[in-house]
């Protein structure tokens, strides 16, 4: 395939794959919240359980990564469709948005872990 067609196709595939990951992550996240707060939960109690937990860091790290792939690809499609934006500025802008999501998302995960 030509480079452009291949890139567009792989981005589409990445968005579908990240959607599948998100479906699992969102359900696990909601189930965990519902289970954990049954008897009330303070910030200190949350941190006592999350600090040093590699399982939590892996799960939420993956969650953030899936969001950072899924949302910018979708945003790119919406901007193209709604405003007719095309080309390199759109690609760079949405790539920067992906970077923003990864940076702040992983920073939050690190805050819970460390």
């Amino acid at each position: 395939m030509k480079l452009r067609a291949r890139a567009e196709t792989l981005l589409w595939g990445a968005q579908r794959a990240s959607a599948a990951v998100l479906a699992v992550c969102v359900l696990a996240h909601l189930a965990t919240i519902l289970y954990a707060v049954r008897g009330g939960l303070t910030a200190a109690e949350i941190l006592s359980r999350t600090r040093g937990s590699f399982a939590l860091a892996f799960f939420y790290g993956l969650f953030v990564l899936a969001v950072a792939v899924h949302a910018p690809v979708g945003l790119r499609a919406i901007l193209r469709e709604t405003f007719g934006w095309r080309g390199v500025p759109l690609d760079l802008g949405t790539a920067a948005f992906a970077g923003f999501l990864v940076w702040f998302g992983w920073r939050a995960v690190a805050g819970l872990f460390a």
């Binding site: 395939m1 067609a5 291949r6 567009e8 196709t9 589409w12 499609a77 193209r80 469709e81």
Partner: peptide, 16 residues
């Protein structure tokens, strides 16, 4: 199919 799949990929094609 090589040219055809190139032609139908992208935001003017099937992925839209």
């Amino acid at each position: 199919n090589a040219d055809r799949l190139d032609a139908v990929a992208g935001d003017a094609g099937c992925h839209a």
